[in-house]
């Protein structure tokens, strides 16, 4: 408090109207920016949301997956894998995900539960038993990212088609 205080009548108060007017403009601009951040979040650009739901592969094809492009570090993520009639054949269904991607996340759950998981040729292979040939199958991978940044992944059916996808994990 070394500088002299502004005086309003008898009142010594550090009022600064010039600063206050500049601040009000800055404050209003800040509000607009905060509103834009919220809008972005609602739309899904800062986490899962309606505009950033992606499909990798062709919907209705032998293999496609649904995911949200923007996810967050240590937050639950769903990866829905759809297998079409052509791909789901035989008594066993083997899906693989590239090792680099699986290493970037902590796998929490796979629905339905796979019969086995093994590491083969830098890929995690998930084997599911199928009692009869299903027309289609849905497999849900649930995990939490333990890295942040852009994380590309590959997922496929053993000896079958594969799809590529990219996540952006926010800190």
């Amino acid at each position: 408090m070394s500088t002299a205080m502004a005086r309003i009548g008898e009142l010594e108060v550090g009022q600064d109207l010039k600063f206050e007017r500049r601040w009000w403009k800055f404050e209003r601009t800040g509000w607009i920016l905060l509103a834009l951040v919220l809008l972005f979040a609602i739309l899904g650009y800062l986490g899962p949301g309606p505009l950033t739901k992606h499909v990798a592969g062709t919907r209705g094809g032998p293999l496609w997956l649904e995911y949200h492009r923007y996810e967050r570090y240590h937050a639950p993520v769903d990866l829905r894998v759809h297998i079409g009639a052509v791909a789901a054949r035989g008594k066993e269904l083997q899906l693989w995900i590239d090792r680099e991607y699986v290493d970037a996340v902590s796998m929490e759950d796979v629905e339905p539960q796979p019969e086995s998981v093994e590491l083969k040729n830098e890929r995690f292979v998930y084997t599911f038993k199928v009692s009869e040939t299903p027309r289609t199958a849905k497999i849900l991978f649930q995990f939490k990212p333990n890295k942040f940044g852009k994380t590309p992944g590959r997922l496929g059916i053993v000896d079958g088609p594969e799809v590529r996808f990219t996540h952006l994990f926010y800190p």
Partner: peptide
Amino acid sequence: EKWLDDVPLVIFEN
């Protein structure tokens, strides 16, 4: 200090 802590403002005066 002004930008971070703001300044007092008289709103009613005599």
